[in-house]
Computed example of a mutant assay.
Amino acid sequence: MTIRTKTPGELDAVQTAFESDVQAVQPGILTVDGEWTQRAFIVGSSLGLVPWPQFAQVDYAVVLCDGVWRRALPVQHFFPMSAGTGSQLDLPTDLPTDLAPSKIALQVDNPTGKAAEFTAIIFGPCVNPAFQIGTNTYEVDVTVAAGGYISLSATGLEKSIHLTADNGDLSDVFDKGKRGSGSGGGSYVFEPIPAGDSLLTISGNFGIDLTLYDVSGGVPWRTLSSQTPS
């Protein structure tokens, strides 16, 4: 990667940041045009020859850590207009059974042409929230108070489930996610989202923010509005 600048002094600060990542063994994020990202280390540099004393050109060696580039697609918001109670509905007559809560049908769009990684935010209040996309059910067996939410990550970089309480307390609830028999089993909480349009069914009165990720082995330049790395 080549950097050219008219303010060579700024390169010192940049070099310090690069070295700090390596020393901490914590990669930074390399972003192309604010769209495609990958974790990376900058591990070496060499000063290029330029004819102007106030102009610098530096060639950096970059180690890409993930093997693929990722781009977050626009967040899809799902808030049922008709809220269920999350519990059974009592019939006016004294029968030995009642009605199950209604389910709200919505639609998820995955335009990538392949199964997509995703992250989701599930908003409380709800108890054991579950939703179905296509043939797979995603369920987390926790109670979420009003003002709280679940953060679910199902990407190649991270598989995690965290609960944020209404007071801001953060808990790791990874073991509360239903994983069934694993991917393809129909009840895997980290199952990729199918390509195309899929029916989303929410059983309860909670909202979901769903972010899908496009993944590519190389930066697809045709998708960029400009070709400016950052």
Rank of each mutant, 00 (worst) to 15 (best):
M1V: 08
T2L: 12
T2F: 08
K6P: 12
K6M: 14
P8R: 13
G9F: 13
L11Q: 15
D12W: 09
D12T: 14
A13N: 12
A13S: 14
Q15H: 08
Q15T: 09
F18L: 06
E19N: 14
E19Q: 13
D21W: 11
Q23S: 12
A24T: 05
A24M: 12
W36I: 04
W36M: 04
T37F: 04
A40I: 05
I42L: 06
V43C: 06
V43H: 02
G44K: 00
G48C: 12
V50A: 14
Q54R: 09
F55S: 10
A56V: 03
A56E: 14
A56S: 15
Q57V: 15
V58A: 07
L64M: 11
C65R: 06
D66C: 03
R71Y: 07
A72K: 03
A72C: 02
L73H: 01
P74C: 03
Q76H: 00
M81K: 06
S82W: 10
S82Q: 08
T85Q: 05
S87W: 04
S87D: 11
Q88K: 00
Q88F: 06
L89A: 06
D90S: 03
D90H: 03
D90M: 00
L91G: 01
L91E: 04
L91M: 10
P92Q: 06
T93E: 12
T93L: 10
T93G: 00
L95R: 01
L99I: 02
S102G: 04
S102M: 05
K103Q: 12
V108H: 05
P111M: 03
T112A: 13
T112Y: 04
A116Q: 03
F118N: 07
A120V: 10
A120E: 11
P125L: 07
P125Y: 03
C126G: 09
N128D: 15
A130H: 07
A130F: 07
I133V: 15
G134M: 13
T137F: 00
Y138F: 14
V142G: 09
T143K: 09
G147P: 14
G147T: 11
Y149P: 10
S151W: 07
G156M: 10
G156L: 09
L157Y: 03
L157Q: 07
E158Y: 01
K159A: 13
I161G: 08
H162I: 06
L163I: 04
L163N: 08
G168M: 09
G168T: 07
D169S: 05
L170C: 06
S171W: 01
D172E: 08
D172K: 02
V173A: 07
V173F: 04
V173E: 14
V173M: 07
F174C: 13
F174T: 14
R179K: 15
G180C: 05
G180T: 04
S181L: 10
G182H: 05
S183G: 09
S187V: 07
V189A: 15
V189H: 10
P192E: 13
I193W: 02
I193G: 01
I193L: 03
P194M: 10
D197F: 04
S198C: 01
I202Q: 08
F206N: 12
F206K: 09
F206R: 11
F206H: 15
G207K: 02
I208A: 05
I208D: 00
I208S: 04
D209Y: 03
L210R: 02
D214L: 01
V215M: 08
V215R: 03
G218R: 12
R222K: 14
L224E: 14
S226F: 09
Q227V: 13
Q227L: 11
T228V: 14
T228P: 05
P229V: 06
P229A: 02
S230C: 02
